[in-house]
């Protein structure tokens, strides 16, 4: 509970800063409107107007919060296409779009983590892979994802693979890397003494791996999984941009920018941030449980 107060203090400061920025950002539009109507705006009227525009340059926090609420709970509970009326998620709700993105993220994350761990094992145990894989892995991450994502989508589309899988592949592309780096470090964490000790027991290769290297790598694994899941989400969102903005948080961002719906963009951004925070927190919980059961509680 001690952590709550500083977090709340920082959040409050950020919201205050945001509100302070809303006025100058949106003032131009408010002034122009008033001039056209031949009116003179008082300061209070100006502030009130900047906080409640339809298409503000910078929406106020409460507008974003309102939109988040409307496009999740209100839409699903009362909307014509909402869950309560149709039994399926509304394609106008962030719950639906969030789920579309989340499913691609989770699939990509799962594949990426498995790939990352496999590559790390290869790098640690195989001299040729040690020398060759890492430079390629690093090079893969220097290519801008925005450039390569449409290529992957288009190529996979051409061979008839559409929907979830192409997005998951782009998530994989971003999420395997932190896992490789973390797991190589983790599997190499045992020192010479511990490895010598295993040799004095005449332990086999698999025994050294499962009894020493793998448990040693657990703290590193969880640290890199947290980075990987956030990267997987970014990958899924980016992958939704070139598909014609049909579904997903990426689609909401894109259609929002087509129609100048800044409130919609910001609420989609916040939905993504909340999703990411939730997933990272979930991994944190799994980490705490695992390490506690291993007696390594911190």
């Amino acid at each position: 509970m001690r952590n709550v107060i500083p977090v709340l203090a920082v959040t409050a400061a950020l919201i205050a800063l945001w509100y302070a920025a809303v006025v100058p950002m949106n003032a131009q539009w408010a002034q122009d409107q008033a001039r056209r109507a031949g009116q003179e705006l008082t300061f209070t009227a100006l502030v009130a107007d900047t906080m409640s525009q339809q298409r503000p340059r910078l929406p106020a926090p409460h507008q974003v919060a309102q939109e988040l609420w409307n496009s999740t709970v209100v839409e699903e509970m009362t909307g014509r296409r909402g869950f309560m009326n149709t039994g399926t998620l509304s394609n106008r709700s962030l719950v639906y779009h969030g789920w579309v993105t989340l499913s691609a993220t989770l699939l990509g994350f799962a594949i990426g983590s498995a790939l990352g761990i496999t590559l790390a094992v290869g790098i640690v145990y195989n001299r040729a892979m040690d020398a060759s894989v890492m430079p390629w892995a690093i090079a893969s991450q220097t290519i801008p994802i925005l450039a390569i994502a449409p290529m992957i989508i288009v190529v996979l589309n051409a061979v008839g693979i559409t929907g979830l899988v192409p997005k998951a592949i782009i998530s994989t592309y971003l999420s395997f890397f932190p896992v490789v780096v973390g797991m190589v470090k983790g599997l190499r964490a045992p020192d010479h003494m511990q490895l010598d000790q295993m040799k004095t027991y005449s332990a086999s290769g698999p025994q050294v791996f499962f009894k020493l290297r793998l448990p040693s790598s657990m703290p590193y694994l969880f640290a890199s999984l947290k980075v990987a899941i956030a990267a997987a989400l970014v990958g899924a969102i980016v992958a939704e941009l070139p598909t014609g903005a049909v579904a997903g948080l990426g689609a909401r961002l894109l259609s929002g920018s087509y129609y100048g719906q800044t409130v919609q963009i910001w609420s989609a951004l916040f939905a993504a941030a909340i999703l990411a925070a939730g997933m990272v927190a979930l991994i944190g919980v799994i980490q705490r449980i695992t390490l506690r059961r291993m007696g390594m509680a911190t």
Binding site: M193, Q194, Q197, K199, T200, S202, L212, P215, G295, M296
Partner: peptide
């Protein structure tokens, strides 16, 4: 002799696994 488990070796550091009792 090592394979026949002829000796036990105690290192400078205890080197106990933190995840084991």
């Amino acid at each position: 002799a090592r394979r026949a488990r002829a000796y036990g070796y105690v290192f400078q550091a205890a080197g106990l696994y933190p995840w084991r009792t």
